[in-house]
Amino acid sequence: MTEYKLVVVGAGGVGKSALTIQLIQNHFVDEYDPTIEDSYRKQVVIDGETCLLDILDTAGQEEYSAMRDQYMRTGEGFLCVFAINNTKSFEDIHHYREQIKRVKDSEDVPMVLVGNKCDLPSRTVDTKQAQDLARSYGIPFIETSAKTRQGVDDAFYTLVREIRKHKEKMSKDGKKKKKKSKTKCVIM
């Protein structure tokens, strides 16, 4: 069974824990209790493949930012979460993405942009803004509501699919490099 290491990042209060708990335990946590770091595991079937999701729910508070490099190193894919009623959390996505790329030393890291709290009427981040940002990053965008469960499975499952595509691409690139290195030079 394939294991996928997913990391949920975003500013404090955007609903990272609520999304994760909704996926794992099928219930909505409405009281806000700032996370330092929590880890969850769940076995699911995605596109006919049974897999184990190892999900790291991270601290959004700035005082825990020193811990970010460590979990970013171990993560295979990242859910970059903002709240649709919090423009600052949307603007912060850029910083999370840049930090992930720096730590992973790669421009090509599996990510999904997630606009959470889409059940709320007080939207300050337009869907088109988020779609445009995701398009500019070359990553999928999904709106979710941890409260109603809308888009929750889709967000995590899409990230797994992005990781699969990335692994497939990397193995193809690896095979191309191996083929090239088999060419021999004969000096007579």
Score class of each variant (00 low, 15 high):
residue 2 T to M: 15
residue 4 Y to F: 12
residue 4 Y to H: 10
residue 5 K to L: 01
residue 5 K to G: 11
residue 5 K to H: 04
residue 6 L to R: 01
residue 6 L to D: 03
residue 6 L to A: 11
residue 7 V to R: 14
residue 7 V to G: 04
residue 7 V to C: 14
residue 8 V to T: 15
residue 8 V to K: 02
residue 8 V to F: 02
residue 9 V to E: 00
residue 10 G to Y: 02
residue 12 G to D: 14
residue 12 G to H: 12
residue 12 G to S: 13
residue 13 G to N: 15
residue 14 V to W: 06
residue 14 V to P: 13
residue 14 V to I: 12
residue 14 V to C: 10
residue 15 G to F: 15
residue 15 G to N: 07
residue 15 G to L: 02
residue 16 K to H: 00
residue 16 K to V: 00
residue 16 K to S: 12
residue 16 K to L: 00
residue 16 K to W: 01
residue 17 S to C: 02
residue 17 S to L: 01
residue 18 A to C: 11
residue 19 L to S: 14
residue 20 T to C: 02
residue 20 T to R: 00
residue 20 T to N: 02
residue 20 T to L: 03
residue 20 T to G: 01
residue 21 I to S: 02
residue 22 Q to H: 04
residue 22 Q to M: 07
residue 23 L to E: 15
residue 23 L to M: 10
residue 24 I to L: 15
residue 24 I to S: 01
residue 24 I to D: 01
residue 26 N to L: 05
residue 26 N to K: 15
residue 26 N to H: 14
residue 26 N to Y: 08
residue 27 H to S: 15
residue 27 H to V: 15
residue 28 F to G: 00
residue 28 F to E: 00
residue 28 F to W: 12
residue 29 V to C: 04
residue 29 V to H: 09
residue 30 D to H: 12
residue 31 E to F: 14
residue 31 E to K: 01
residue 31 E to T: 03
residue 31 E to C: 04
residue 32 Y to H: 11
residue 32 Y to Q: 01
residue 33 D to N: 01
residue 33 D to Q: 01
residue 33 D to I: 00
residue 33 D to R: 00
residue 33 D to F: 00
residue 34 P to S: 01
residue 34 P to K: 00
residue 34 P to T: 02
residue 34 P to C: 01
residue 35 T to W: 00
residue 36 I to H: 00
residue 36 I to R: 00
residue 36 I to P: 00
residue 37 E to Y: 15
residue 37 E to D: 07
residue 37 E to F: 15
residue 38 D to H: 01
residue 38 D to Y: 01
residue 39 S to Q: 10
residue 40 Y to H: 00
residue 40 Y to W: 00
residue 41 R to E: 05
residue 43 Q to A: 11
residue 43 Q to M: 13
residue 44 V to M: 15
residue 46 I to N: 10
residue 46 I to K: 05
residue 47 D to F: 14
residue 47 D to R: 13
residue 47 D to W: 05
residue 48 G to M: 10
residue 48 G to Q: 11
residue 49 E to Q: 11
residue 49 E to L: 08
residue 49 E to W: 08
residue 50 T to V: 12
residue 50 T to K: 07
residue 50 T to I: 13
residue 50 T to R: 12
residue 51 C to W: 10
residue 52 L to H: 09
residue 52 L to C: 14
residue 53 L to W: 04
residue 53 L to G: 10
residue 53 L to H: 02
residue 53 L to M: 09
residue 55 I to R: 00
residue 56 L to K: 12
residue 56 L to M: 04
residue 57 D to V: 00
residue 57 D to S: 00
residue 57 D to N: 00
residue 58 T to R: 00
residue 58 T to G: 01
residue 59 A to W: 00
residue 60 G to K: 00
residue 60 G to N: 00
residue 60 G to M: 00
residue 61 Q to P: 03
residue 61 Q to K: 08
residue 63 E to P: 02
residue 63 E to F: 01
residue 64 Y to D: 01
residue 64 Y to E: 01
residue 65 S to C: 05
residue 65 S to K: 10
residue 65 S to G: 05
residue 66 A to G: 15
residue 67 M to C: 04
residue 70 Q to M: 13
residue 70 Q to H: 11
residue 70 Q to Y: 12
residue 71 Y to K: 14
residue 73 R to G: 08
residue 73 R to Q: 08
residue 74 T to H: 11
residue 74 T to D: 11
residue 75 G to W: 05
residue 76 E to Y: 09
residue 76 E to Q: 08
residue 76 E to I: 09
residue 77 G to A: 14
residue 77 G to M: 14
residue 77 G to S: 13
residue 77 G to L: 10
residue 79 L to W: 01
residue 79 L to T: 01
residue 79 L to C: 08
residue 80 C to N: 03
residue 80 C to D: 04
residue 81 V to L: 07
residue 81 V to H: 05
residue 81 V to C: 09
residue 81 V to G: 04
residue 81 V to D: 02
residue 81 V to P: 03
residue 82 F to A: 14
residue 82 F to R: 01
residue 82 F to V: 15
residue 84 I to H: 13
residue 84 I to R: 12
residue 86 N to S: 08
residue 86 N to I: 03
residue 86 N to F: 01
residue 89 S to E: 11
residue 90 F to L: 07
residue 90 F to V: 11
residue 93 I to R: 12
residue 94 H to Q: 15
residue 95 H to Y: 04
residue 95 H to C: 05
residue 96 Y to S: 06
residue 96 Y to L: 15
residue 96 Y to I: 13
residue 97 R to W: 14
residue 98 E to S: 04
residue 101 K to D: 05
residue 103 V to F: 13
residue 103 V to Y: 04
residue 103 V to S: 04
residue 104 K to R: 13
residue 104 K to W: 14
residue 105 D to E: 07
residue 105 D to A: 05
residue 105 D to K: 02
residue 105 D to C: 08
residue 106 S to M: 13
residue 106 S to A: 11
residue 106 S to N: 08
residue 106 S to R: 13
residue 107 E to Y: 06
residue 108 D to Q: 08
residue 108 D to L: 07
residue 109 V to W: 12
residue 110 P to Y: 02
residue 111 M to G: 01
residue 111 M to S: 02
residue 112 V to L: 10
residue 112 V to K: 02
residue 112 V to S: 02
residue 113 L to V: 08
residue 113 L to N: 03
residue 113 L to D: 12
residue 113 L to C: 07
residue 114 V to A: 05
residue 115 G to R: 09
residue 116 N to V: 13
residue 116 N to P: 04
residue 116 N to L: 09
residue 116 N to K: 05
residue 117 K to L: 15
residue 117 K to I: 14
residue 117 K to R: 12
residue 117 K to E: 14
residue 117 K to A: 14
residue 118 C to M: 13
residue 119 D to W: 04
residue 119 D to N: 12
residue 120 L to N: 15
residue 120 L to T: 09
residue 121 P to R: 09
residue 121 P to D: 12
residue 122 S to G: 11
residue 122 S to D: 10
residue 122 S to P: 11
residue 122 S to V: 06
residue 124 T to Q: 10
residue 124 T to S: 09
residue 125 V to H: 12
residue 126 D to Q: 06
residue 126 D to I: 05
residue 126 D to Y: 07
residue 126 D to G: 07
residue 126 D to K: 08
residue 127 T to A: 06
residue 128 K to M: 08
residue 128 K to D: 08
residue 128 K to A: 07
residue 128 K to I: 07
residue 129 Q to V: 10
residue 129 Q to Y: 15
residue 130 A to M: 12
residue 130 A to C: 12
residue 130 A to P: 10
residue 131 Q to K: 10
residue 132 D to Q: 06
residue 132 D to K: 09
residue 132 D to W: 08
residue 133 L to R: 08
residue 134 A to D: 14
residue 134 A to I: 15
residue 135 R to T: 09
residue 135 R to H: 04
residue 136 S to Q: 14
residue 136 S to I: 06
residue 136 S to M: 09
residue 136 S to P: 15
residue 136 S to D: 15
residue 137 Y to S: 14
residue 137 Y to P: 15
residue 137 Y to W: 10
residue 137 Y to F: 07
residue 138 G to D: 04
residue 139 I to W: 04
residue 140 P to L: 03
residue 141 F to W: 05
residue 142 I to L: 07
residue 149 R to V: 06
residue 150 Q to V: 02
residue 150 Q to S: 15
residue 151 G to C: 09
residue 151 G to S: 13
residue 152 V to Q: 14
residue 152 V to L: 06
residue 153 D to I: 07
residue 153 D to M: 08
residue 153 D to A: 08
residue 154 D to F: 06
residue 154 D to Y: 05
residue 155 A to V: 07
residue 155 A to I: 09
residue 156 F to N: 03
residue 156 F to A: 03
residue 157 Y to M: 05
residue 157 Y to N: 10
residue 158 T to P: 05
residue 158 T to V: 07
residue 159 L to V: 06
residue 159 L to H: 02
residue 159 L to R: 03
residue 162 E to T: 10
residue 162 E to W: 05
residue 164 R to A: 09
residue 165 K to A: 05
residue 165 K to E: 08
residue 166 H to C: 11
residue 166 H to R: 06
residue 167 K to D: 07
residue 167 K to V: 06
residue 167 K to H: 07
residue 168 E to G: 10
residue 169 K to N: 08
residue 169 K to I: 05
residue 169 K to L: 05
residue 170 M to W: 15
residue 170 M to K: 08
residue 172 K to M: 13
residue 173 D to F: 14
residue 174 G to P: 05
residue 175 K to E: 14
residue 175 K to D: 03
residue 175 K to V: 04
residue 176 K to F: 09
residue 177 K to A: 09
residue 177 K to M: 09
residue 178 K to A: 07
residue 178 K to M: 04
residue 178 K to I: 07
residue 180 K to R: 10
residue 181 S to R: 05
residue 181 S to V: 08
residue 182 K to F: 10
residue 183 T to F: 14
residue 183 T to R: 03
residue 183 T to V: 02
residue 183 T to H: 09
residue 185 C to F: 08
residue 185 C to T: 15
residue 185 C to G: 13
residue 186 V to T: 04
residue 186 V to N: 11
residue 187 I to K: 08
residue 187 I to G: 13
residue 188 M to A: 05
residue 188 M to Q: 11
